[in-house]
Structure formats: structure tokens, C-alpha cells
């Protein structure tokens, strides 16, 4: 008998609730390392990731997207805020407040896929040891069980199990990224943080890896936080997209809505900057001038106002809040309701 399906779509179940996440890095000076300022790399970020969805996190370099994702993994300790995680056991824990010992049992549930397929695998370890290492550190299975699991994982990502006794150097970039994915999946995680997983790959290999990620997600009911700068890739894989600028979220919405009706001028500018693979469509004109301000000394008011074509006096003084413009569509702009019609004018 098949499982009864609900006649109406079930409401999304939150897996991770990020509230007011902050990460500051001190700026030190002199021999005594006196703290003279703070780089506010992530400054009050709120978002929720639902079970089984892909949340895309985009922004330019230095916007804090990688720092935010590393805070969620507790690879670095956040300065403030909460990271409420719904565990497999059904509890809600604040990852930001847990001690390293309390985190240990949860490590297996949240895993990461890295950007550089050449730097992220140990060249002196075989695939068996590279892919099986998360099982070893999490104390899962004996050697025989680990070997079986690695064979299963390699098959899952489209590699031959016989490869497990080879070393990473024998594989191409795309194959290595598959190995990295197999390792991330070793502990049967629920949430996978992927930081630029395809940006180092060739066009044709990129398509293969994106297809693999989509397939694995539906097969294993995975939840992805997909951090990337390439908007066409993020659009392809994400259910919802969050845009960051100078440590803050400026827009968060379902993929279709954000591309059809961007409610923040920065999002619209990012989209216009993508070179479209069609010579009949002229993009990269009417481009965004200026540079990203330093998170150590952000501008007054709206952080985007010095580069915004539509900035008014109010934008220089008043800091806009992230507001819900239409259901599920959040934007941090005083004039969010007027977009994108205003942009076309």
C-alpha cells in the first residue's frame, strides 16, 4: 500500500531557524593587539530553512554569506543570535549556545560540501579513508561496515566502488567533487551546507554535479543551504533565495518571485550584471557602479544607498528594516512596494 498523500500541500516544517545571527571580527592594532574596531561580517541575519528545501544564499565577495554558513556549522563561533535546529530526535536546540561536547552528536546531522575539489580531499588518503573519515570520527560502524558504506556512497554519486582504493589525484575535478559529496553524505545528514560547490567546475561538469545534487535531494530528502555567487546556478537549484549585502539580508523570497519581482534595487542590479548567454539579449549595460562598502565602516542609513540609482534623502538617514512585502517575500528597502515598476522607469 502506498502512503496516503495529503490533498492539500503540507505546510513546510522548519529545520533550521536563524535569528539575529551576528559574527564580528575584531580589528586589532599594535603590539598589545588593542581592539580598535569591529568588522561586522554578519550583522543580524534572520532566515528559516524548511525540511527538504534548498535555500540559496547569494551576494558578492565579502557580503558575509560564507561567514554565515560557517556559523551554522559552528566552524566558527557566532558573536550573537540564535541558530535553532530541529534535531532528528524532535528537540529544538540552539546550535549557537551549545558546548563543543554537546555539539558532537549533532555534527553527523549537518555536513558540508566544499568549493575546491582539489584542496578539500586529503591527497595521501585513499577514497575509502577520505569518504569514510566522517564515519570514523563519528564512531559509526567497524571497518567492514565502513567499507560497505563507502562502496554504497560511491555508487550513489555515480562512481565505481572499485575506485575506493585509489587516491584523489587519479580523478578529474568533477569526479573529485562527487567524492566530496559522497563524504558529506557519509553520516546520513539532514542538512547539507554547500559553499560554491560548482564554481570551480567546467560548464558541462557543472551541469552533471547540479543534476546529482537535485537527484540526491529528492532521493534522500536532504535539505540544502546552497551558498554561491552565480545567480543562474542558484536560480536553477533553489526553492527560495536569500540575498546578502554587507552582512545583512536585503531580500528573501521564493525563487520565482525574486526573479520576477525583485523588491530590492540591489537584487535587481545583481540580476542585470549576469552576462546572458544570448547575443540578442544585451545585459551588463546599465550596470551597478561603485564598490561594496567595508563591513568595518558601513555607510549611514541603508547600506546600499551610495550605489543605489533611486536613493533619496531618507535612505541616507533611516536604516530600513527587513519587511514582509507580499506573503513570504521579504525586502530591506523603504520603497520595496514600488519595485520593480520603479526600476523600469
Amino acid at each position: 500500500m502506498t502512503e496516503p498523500t495529503s490533498p492539500v500541500p503540507l505546510p513546510p516544517v522548519p529545520l533550521l531557524d536563524v535569528r539575529g545571527l551576528q559574527k564580528f571580527f575584531p580589528i586589532t592594532k599594535g603590539f598589545l593587539q588593542r581592539v580598535t574596531g569591529q568588522v561586522r561580517a554578519v550583522d543580524g541575519v534572520d532566515f528559516t530553512i524548511h525540511e527538504g528545501e534548498t535555500l540559496g544564499l547569494v551576494g558578492e565577495s565579502g557580503c558575509g554569506k560564507t561567514t554565515a554558513s560557517r556559523c551554522i556549522l559552528r566552524a566558527i563561533d557566532p558573536t550573537g543570535g540564535e541558530i535553532r535546529y530541529h534535531t532528528r530526535a524532535g528537540d529544538i536546540v540552539d546550535l549557537a549556545a551549545l558546548s563543543p561536547a554537546e555539539l558532537l552528536p549533532l555534527r553527523a546531522e549537518i555536513q558540508m560540501i566544499f568549493q575546491d575539489p582539489f584542496g578539500s580531499l586529503n591527497p595521501r588518503m585513499t577514497l575509502l579513508d577520505n569518504v569514510g573519515e566522517p564515519l570514523l570520527v563519528n564512531g559509526m560502524g567497524n571497518r567492514g561496515e565502513r567499507t560497505d558504506r563507502v562502496a554504497e556512497l560511491l555508487r550513489l554519486v555515480g562512481l565505481r566502488p572499485e575506485f575506493m582504493h585509489r587516491f584523489p589525484h587519479a580523478f578529474s575535478g568533477g569526479q573529485r567533487q562527487r567524492i566530496g559529496i559522497a563524504r558529506a553524505l557519509a553520516t546520513n545528514p539532514r542538512l547539507v551546507v554547500a559553499d560554491e560547490p560548482v564554481s570551480a567546475l567546467d560548464v558541462s561538469v557543472q551541469a552533471q554535479v547540479l543534476n546529482l545534487l537535485l537527484e540526491l535531494q529528492s532521493r534522500l530528502k536532504l535539505t540544502f543551504l546552497f551558498v554561491a555567487h552565480d545567480l543562474s546556478v542558484v536560480r536553477h537549484i533553489s526553492d527560495r533565495i536569500a540575498v546578502m549585502y554587507v552582512g545583512q539580508l536585503v531580500e528573501l523570497a521564493p525563487t520565482d518571485a525574486i526573479f520576477r519581482h525583485p523588491r530590492h534595487p540591489y537584487t535587481a542590479a545583481l540580476m542585470r550584471a549576469v552576462p546572458v548567454a544570448d547575443p540578442r539579449v544585451r545585459t551588463i549595460d546599465g550596470i551597478l557602479g561603485g564598490e561594496v562598502p567595508s563591513p568595518a565602516a558601513p555607510p549611514s542609513g541603508c547600506y546600499f544607498h551610495p550605489r543605489c540609482r533611486h536613493a533619496e534623502a531618507r535612505c541616507m538617514q533611516e536604516t530600513p528594516e527587513l519587511r514582509e512585502i507580499t506573503p513570504g517575500h521579504f525586502a530591506r528597502c523603504h520603497f520595496a512596494e514600488l519595485w520593480p515598476e520603479r526600476d523600469a522607469a
Binding site: S204, A207, L231, V233, H236, A277
Partner: peptide, 30 residues
């Protein structure tokens, strides 16, 4: 881009995700 003659060019063009078109579907790969 609009009348590629070589199978490799055609395959390459098909494999890139764009800013329009279906999302979360399998991309044609080489």
C-alpha cells in the same frame, strides 16, 4: 548561439542554466 552546427557546441549551450526557463529540473549533460 542560435544556429550551432557542431554537436559539441549544441551540447555545451544546452548544459548551462539560464535566468529564464524551468528550475530544479535535470539539465541536459554531455
Amino acid at each position: 548561439f542560435h544556429a550551432p552546427a557542431h554537436p559539441y557546441t549544441r551540447a555545451l549551450l544546452r548544459s548551462i542554466p539560464g535566468l529564464t526557463g524551468a528550475t530544479r529540473t535535470a539539465l541536459p549533460v554531455i
